[in-house]
């Protein structure tokens, strides 16, 4: 149980954010009304996705340095888990946008950016499928992963700031901090983010361990 404390922490943080997110007071805003509570559930998806992609890049760098196939497995499983979170983020975002902005896919730089980032990581998976040899696949996909990551960061962080966006914090919209005047939302939001990131990391490690087991059983046969 000594090593599992962070998993329990993840469960507690997410549960706490659910309770506090539904019961706690929120600023009264036009258009958004009660749906401001979605901040506790929709935004953490994107944060966990980014952290998982970051883990993937770190392990790709590690792989290129060491040549250890375990690092490559970690990198690909982080991407796999990150894509799941990305789809959750897109789906929840579309539901939310449908009632507040009037359409599920408004032409917004953040939306388009995240769609392109999804394409980038799907391309990473396609690239992996195209290569058969294990060492070569690991090496080439690691190179692509590291090559694509900074451009994705530009895409998701810098471009929306340059253009008008419906999302807070860009194009003249007020930031999240200004909306949250009584600072009540902040702790709930951060605990939700940390909880979901830990959950994502947990799922990722489970997939990683399963992959290692698969590899082991393949070798024995």
């Amino acid at each position: 149980m000594r090593k599992n404390w962070w998993k329990i922490l993840a469960a507690c943080l997410v549960s706490a954010s659910v309770v506090a997110g539904f019961i706690g007071p929120v600023p009264e805003l036009h258009i958004l009304n009660e749906s401001i509570r979605n901040v506790y559930f929709h935004v953490p998806m994107w944060f966990s996705m980014l952290i998982l992609y970051l883990i993937s890049v770190i392990y790709s760098v590690k792989y290129l340095n060491s040549g250890d196939i375990k690092h490559d497995i970690m990198a690909v499983e982080a991407v796999n888990t990150g894509i799941i979170f990305c789809f959750f983020g897109l789906l929840t975002g579309m539901q939310w946008a449908n009632i507040t902005w009037g359409e599920p896919w408004p032409n917004d730089p953040k939306l388009n950016g995240s769609a392109i980032a999804t394409l980038m990581y799907l391309a990473y998976l396609v690239l992996r499928n195209a290569l058969d040899e294990e060492q070569k696949r690991a090496k080439i996909s690691a190179v692509y992963n590291i090559f694509a990551f900074p451009i994705m960061v530009v895409l998701l962080y810098i471009l929306p700031k340059l253009t008008d966006s419906l999302h807070p914090g860009s194009g003249g919209n007020s930031t999240f901090g200004e909306l949250d005047m009584d600072n009540y939302m902040r702790p709930v939001f951060y605990s939700a983010v940390v909880g979901w990131i830990l959950t994502g990391a947990w799922v990722c490690t489970i997939r990683y361990r399963l992959r290692l087991l698969e590899n082991k059983s393949n070798k024995i046969q």
């Binding site: 392109i116 394409l119 391309a123 690239l127 694509a148 471009l159």
Partner: peptide, 12 residues
């Protein structure tokens, strides 16, 4: 497949 996602941000 590899080039398009990388080039789209530049293209924007």
């Amino acid at each position: 497949i590899l080039a398009f996602p990388v080039i789209i941000p530049l293209l924007i």
